[in-house]
Amino acid sequence: MSAHISASNPPRATHARVSAPVYVYHLPVRIWHWVTVFSIATLSVTGFLIADPPWPVLLGQPSNLFLMGDIRVTHFIAGDVLAVALLVRMYWAVVGSRYEREIFMPAVWRGSWWRGLFRTIRWYFFLERETAREIGHNPLEQIAMFAMFTLGVLFEIVTGFALYGQGTGYGTWAYQLFTSWVVPLFGNGQILHTWHHLGMWYLIVFSMVHVYMTIREDIMARYSVMSTMVSGWRFFKDDRDDEEEGV
């Protein structure tokens, strides 16, 4: 398998070799990315504080204090920002480029996608000399973004709004849209809290791997990674073509 797709074979593609950078992530996607980073970080910190308040006993009249209330409202605002940003991002997946659709819809129906996936897995196992020439995400990244990020964040948003609806009460939008069916699905609110908490850890693990892979690929892949999510441009370190182009 590796013989006919490794970079060592003469490239089959005949079109012009392009080393010019590609404008791959439009401004809304980049803004969304950093807004999401900020809100997930805020949500995780406030989430830990809500789940198990670590501060020592606060004495004094409760009328002078609103610590838990402030932390919770921060959590709720960050959650709203995360959800609205994801809605905008979903809209952009429809109107944006194919590379901006990848995290919602990995192209699993394409044979080239699967070949790219195995090539990438070999690359991560140190069995491949170099990466393919990716314009968007490589197939493994697409799968990870979809399964860990997109589904993870959707899970957190749905369970989060369901818990929020318990607080806003019967008849409110959060209760009608989420609490009314999510809580029966999990049994009760306590179980839902546990799953919401686990979902956060899922996203934390994703973030760890995401940040590591971003730094690693920025150094080792044939293209820019970290600067791309700032400027939107993907730069290539060489002008060699390969048959994975355009996967």
Binding site: W55, V57, L59, P62, F66, L67, M68
Partner: peptide, 16 residues
């Protein structure tokens, strides 16, 4: 009100 203030009982016999 103690919940919103962040005032919690930490042990069954503490000041809280």
């Amino acid at each position: 009100p103690h919940f919103d203030a962040g005032q919690f009982v930490e042990a069954w016999d503490d000041q809280g």
